[in-house]
Lab assay of single mutants.
Amino acid sequence: MQRVNMIMAESPGLITICLLGYLLSAECTVFLDHENANKILNRPKRYNSGKLEEFVQGNLERECMEEKCSFEEAREVFENTERTTEFWKQYVDGDQCESNPCLNGGSCKDDINSYECWCPFGFEGKNCELDVTCNIKNGRCEQFCKNSADNKVVCSCTEGYRLAENQKSCEPAVPFPCGRVSVSQTSKLTRAETVFPDVDYVNSTEAETILDNITQSTQSFNDFTRVVGGEDAKPGQFPWQVVLNGKVDAFCGGSIVNEKWIVTAAHCVETGVKITVVAGEHNIEETEHTEQKRNVIRIIPHHNYNAAINKYNHDIALLELDEPLVLNSYVTPICIADKEYTNIFLKFGSGYVSGWGRVFHKGRSALVLQYLRVPLVDRATCLRSTKFTIYNNMFCAGFHEGGRDSCQGDSGGPHVTEVEGTSFLTGIISWGEECAMKGKYGIYTKVSRYVNWIKEKTKLT
């Protein structure tokens, strides 16, 4: 034993070699072989497995989906700052455009905790909710729209109204504003409101030439003092309507412009014939205590009207009353817009006519005020429907199939267009061939041609 100890002390290297040989010859039971080890760690190889990531292109799944990435790591994937920024906006807080917040056709661009709407022409605001041009839906104005110097929408209202708090709607500024039905039992019968379409306001006024200088022999019209197929109006439903009495009662109609003036057809009036105007009328054979009678003290036909040349060209006249009318729910003026808007309103496509005229061709006159909704007829169809001249200051309205029309005794009465609950004068009943005849239409004086003249002559002093 002493000898062994001496050998170990003198030859430590020998001992180490012996131990190493023993270990190498022993069977290893701690580690699995290569094949079995792979069965336990069965993990798919990654895209760049075996390579240094710093030297390969980034992978979106590896960089940002398996674990949260930084902007720089995302930049490695896209290799483009702009594309990385677009991805980053949604990656950080989701897609803010998912709810489609942009209105009126706006395009949404996502941002971090926010979004941006790219608005089409005519709109602005956070969600493109603000109209900035009158060309689109009248700028959301209830009545009139004008573009300011910086191309912003400025709404306005006709006389007797003021802008509401929203700067879009119009509200009454006087007790009985024009064009409004205020009798409670008839307010439910107000005709369907007309909503502004998209309009090209630059070209809204037709490029028409008034044929002022045409000389033409007097034409022989049949029954051209021209509501057939209409309905009984309720008291106060058309408070701007008046009836004219002269040699015979209810020979023509008219509309209240203001307390002192009536507008009617020029062919209705004769110099030297006494005319009485009755406002607030409903049943011409009954006294309903809503009527107001006034005498006409002055007749002003349009300066281009000449019955000797043509009885229905420039067929418009103004009547001055001896005493002002007292405005109330049964006696209310009709609204008159400017030339541009009167023309736009007419193009809405349908209007209402009213009167006490004959209820059928050569038949009896109506006792109760009649009204009828009539569609506008395109000019080409209008011209083809008659052998008589249709001037540019006239328009056609009615039904091709016949059966409904204005008729004798309705002449001078109103053709009105309702705009968001307020009625505007767009025409004056003038003439036609018979009444409600198939293929024939009622012919009306186009008020847009005469609004400046009306307003100039009827100013209240």
Results as ranks from 00 to 15, higher is better:
Ala37Ile: 03
Thr29Tyr: 12
Thr186His: 11
Ile297Val: 09
Asp198Glu: 14
Ile275Arg: 01
Asn245Ala: 07
Gly160Lys: 02
Pro197Phe: 10
Tyr352Gly: 04
Glu323Trp: 06
Phe388Thr: 12
Val30Lys: 13
His267Met: 03
Met394Ser: 08
Val331Leu: 02
Ile454Gln: 01
Lys168Ser: 05
Phe399Cys: 06
Cys407Phe: 09
Val257Asp: 00
His314Trp: 07
Ile316Val: 08
Val228Met: 06
Arg449Phe: 15
Asn147Ser: 09
Arg384Gly: 10
Ile136Gln: 13
Phe71Arg: 05
Lys146Asp: 13
Thr84Asn: 03
His415Gln: 01
Glu53Phe: 00
His267Leu: 02
Asn258Arg: 03
Gly253Phe: 07
Glu286Gly: 09
Gln185Leu: 10
Ala397Arg: 02
Gly160Thr: 11
Gly402Asn: 10
Ile299Gln: 08
Leu367Lys: 14
Asn343Trp: 03
Gly402Pro: 09
Gly229Pro: 12
Cys407Met: 06
Thr417Trp: 01
Val368Thr: 15
Pro101Ile: 06
Lys126Ala: 14
Leu20Asp: 02
Cys252Gly: 01
Asn36Val: 12
His302Tyr: 07
Lys347Trp: 04
Asp111Lys: 11
Arg140Met: 09
Val202Pro: 15
Asn245Met: 07
Ile390Ala: 08
Phe395Glu: 00
Asp405Ile: 14
Ile428Pro: 01
Leu369Asn: 10
Cys335Tyr: 00
Glu288Lys: 07
Lys45Thr: 03
Tyr161Ser: 01
Pro301Arg: 11
Tyr312Ser: 04
Asn42Lys: 14
Thr422Val: 09
Leu376Gln: 06
Ile210Pro: 08
Phe238Gly: 02
Lys260Thr: 01
Val377Asp: 01
Val199Tyr: 14
Cys396Ala: 01
Gly432Asn: 14
Asp410Glu: 14
Lys109His: 14
Asn343Gln: 07
Glu340Met: 08
Thr218Cys: 05
Gln219Trp: 09
Leu41Ser: 04
Val202Asn: 15
Ser411Glu: 13
Leu32Asn: 12
Tyr161Ile: 01
Leu327Met: 13
Cys170Gly: 01
Lys457Ala: 09
Leu130Phe: 10
Cys117Tyr: 02
Ala149Pro: 11
Thr84Phe: 05
Val195Ser: 14
Ser25Phe: 12
Asn166Lys: 03
Tyr201Cys: 08
Gly272Arg: 11
Glu320Cys: 03
His361Ser: 15
Arg364Gln: 10
Cys128Pro: 03
Leu60Ser: 03
Leu372Gln: 14
Tyr444Trp: 02
Glu259Asp: 06
His282Asp: 04
Tyr450Thr: 01
Trp88Arg: 03
Ser169His: 06
Asn393Thr: 11
Gly179Val: 01
Glu86Val: 10
Asn245His: 12
Ala397His: 02
Tyr22Val: 07
Asp110Ala: 14
Thr85Cys: 06
Glu231Lys: 10
Asn213Lys: 06
Leu460Gly: 06
